[in-house]
């Protein structure tokens, strides 16, 4: 399993300074989250770990090695599920196995196993447009999980879902992660979501983004969103975000 690290990273797009001297550290097997205002460079930071962006200055490291290109061991889950509309659910989930040329005879078995894990057994032959929003997002998580990646990078995976589905999906995500040893890095707008899920929350400032505080969350799971500790951490984060 992998560690994730940003070391004094700067990123500019043209004249726009997006990230400024940002450093952060995610441990192996840890569930970490990044919260911050819109446009502060959260997605940009995540995309660097995925190998989709390169820093203008500084270093992006996975397991101590420089990240220079995408690697099927670090899979990103996009905000818009990004399922391929021309593929059925099982074919969508199989994508990564095809791309990495995994043994053909194992593919069906592996696909069915993860579909069962995310609760989509029986929907193998459906097309994405035949599923609800929550189910699409489950399918996109299944598509990442089938690779058995060491790192999952989640960019506001539940941003487009309604509040109730969101809460259900958060519980499902915790179950999937629990005991998997996977390193998780989740981006969210939702402070409660970050605190409910993550062991460590990085709070970013508005653009140019840097980490303004790092909150260690040791509340035992399952977490109660109204417990004293939870409320205290929420206030701490809100204070570092200047919200009152």
């Amino acid at each position: 399993m992998q560690t994730l690290q940003l070391k004094n990273v700067n990123k500019t797009f043209g004249n726009l300074k997006v990230l400024e001297d940002i450093s952060l550290n995610v441990k192996k097997g840890e569930f970490a989250a990044i919260v911050g205002p819109s446009g502060c460079g959260k997605s940009t930071a995540l995309r660097m770990f995925a190998g989709l962006e390169t820093p203008s200055e500084g270093e992006v490291l996975a397991n101590g090695k420089l990240v220079t290109e995408p690697d099927s061991n670090r899979v990103m889950i996009f905000q818009e599920h990004a399922l391929y509309p021309w593929r059925t659910i099982e074919d969508n989930v199989r994508l990564g196995l095809e791309l990495t040329n995994s043994p053909k005879n194992e593919r069906r078995e592996r696909v069915n196993r993860v579909l069962e894990k995310v609760g989509l057994d029986g929907f193998q032959t459906y097309y994405p447009h035949q599923l609800s929003g929550g189910m699409k997002q489950r399918a996109s998580i299944a598509r990442a999980l089938v690779m058995d990646p060491e790192v999952l990078l989640l960019d506001e995976p539940y941003g487009a879902l309604d509040a109730i589905t969101r809460l259900t999906m958060q519980n499902e995500l915790i179950k999937l992660w629990h005991g998997s040893n996977q390193t998780m890095l989740l981006i969210t707008h939702d402070i409660d979501e970050a605190l409910y899920l993550a062991d460590r929350v990085f709070v970013m400032s508005s653009r140019p983004g840097k980490v303004v505080s790092e909150v260690q969350n040791e509340i035992p799971r399952p977490r109660d969103r109204n417990s004293v500790d939870f409320v205290k951490l929420r206030q701490e984060i809100m204070k570092s975000l200047d919200i009152n």
Binding site: G51, L52, S72, R74, F78
Partner: peptide, 17 residues
């Protein structure tokens, strides 16, 4: 769709794929 392309790249696709 750019995300469709990025998704394939993240999963390890080469140019031919």
């Amino acid at each position: 769709n750019r995300t469709h392309l990025e998704l394939a790249r993240v999963m390890g696709a080469n140019t031919r794929q």
